[in-house]
Simulated scan of single mutants.
Amino acid sequence: MKFNATPRSEQGSSASRRLRIAGRVPAIVYGADAQPLNIELDHNEVFHALRKEEFHASILDMQLEGKSSQVLLRAVQWHPYKQQVMHIDFQRVAAGKALHTKVPFHFMNQETSPAVKLSSATISHVFTEIEVNCLPANLPQFIEVDLGQLVAGQSIHLSEIKPPKGVTFSSHSGDDPVIVTALVGGGAANVMTQDEVADEADLPAAGAGEEEAK
């Protein structure tokens, strides 16, 4: 995604207040072994951009004085009660330097999973994003989590999710956190076993192949 920026010469709270009144947003760009750069943005343009997921989890193309720079969105400060962007932080991206940032999960096949179709389970997304390490060229916009085989009462842990090529998930203090779980109201009586799910879905039961082989 592209966005337009203009150099900002005046600094301080009074200057920032005047910018906001004029429909502009004060911002800063830092990193990549260069001096921080104060910039300003059009409020309407950046407000609508912030509503898009890819603006938060993609390498952005900043257009500044006819030159293009790659940056990542790092922080957004909002007004306490107005729909107004107060300040934005961006980080420069260097092609050969690894990034440490957050990427959202996309949960696939949730409505067609056995947990939902056969057990009317409630799917709880414990985590909606994950911290990753990768080079800029390998940064994914999202990480897919396939729920197509999820059974009521089951959970999916981080270790069960395969990261894209060139991407590693940041450690969680050695833990293997639950990413998503299928909850059923009324307790364990409503939880179906793998064999029961196979019967309902007209699929081979677990271990059927082993019996035929004997």
Rank of each mutant, 00 (worst) to 15 (best):
residue 121 A to M: 08
residue 106 H to K: 13
residue 95 A to Q: 14
residue 101 T to S: 14
residue 93 V to H: 03
residue 91 Q to L: 15
residue 106 H to L: 05
residue 110 Q to G: 04
residue 104 P to V: 03
residue 94 A to M: 11
residue 106 H to A: 09
residue 100 H to G: 13
residue 107 F to S: 10
residue 100 H to I: 05
residue 117 K to V: 15
residue 102 K to R: 11
residue 107 F to H: 11
residue 113 S to G: 04
residue 101 T to H: 12
residue 118 L to W: 00
residue 110 Q to W: 00
residue 117 K to D: 03
residue 112 T to C: 07
residue 112 T to D: 13
residue 114 P to F: 03
residue 106 H to N: 10
residue 124 S to C: 04
residue 107 F to Q: 05
residue 111 E to R: 15
residue 104 P to L: 03
residue 104 P to F: 13
residue 119 S to N: 07
residue 120 S to G: 07
residue 91 Q to K: 11
residue 112 T to F: 03
residue 117 K to S: 11
residue 97 K to Q: 15
residue 97 K to C: 04
residue 96 G to V: 04
residue 112 T to L: 12
residue 118 L to H: 10
residue 113 S to F: 03
residue 98 A to Y: 06
residue 94 A to D: 10
residue 120 S to P: 00
residue 102 K to M: 06
residue 90 F to Y: 09
residue 105 F to A: 05
residue 122 T to E: 12
residue 115 A to K: 05
residue 109 N to W: 00
residue 116 V to Q: 05
residue 91 Q to N: 10
residue 116 V to P: 00
residue 112 T to Y: 01
residue 110 Q to N: 00
residue 122 T to K: 12
residue 121 A to N: 09
residue 122 T to Q: 10
residue 107 F to A: 07
residue 96 G to Y: 06
residue 98 A to T: 15
residue 108 M to K: 14
residue 95 A to T: 12
residue 95 A to Y: 09
residue 92 R to F: 04
residue 100 H to E: 07
residue 109 N to A: 11
residue 104 P to E: 06
residue 93 V to S: 05
residue 114 P to K: 03
residue 122 T to W: 06
residue 96 G to P: 02
residue 92 R to Q: 08
residue 103 V to Q: 07
residue 115 A to Y: 03
residue 118 L to M: 11
residue 104 P to A: 09
residue 99 L to G: 10
residue 96 G to R: 10
residue 105 F to M: 01
residue 115 A to V: 04
residue 104 P to G: 07
residue 93 V to N: 11
residue 112 T to A: 09
residue 97 K to A: 14
residue 123 I to Q: 02
residue 94 A to G: 00
residue 105 F to H: 03
residue 95 A to W: 10
residue 97 K to D: 02
residue 110 Q to T: 12
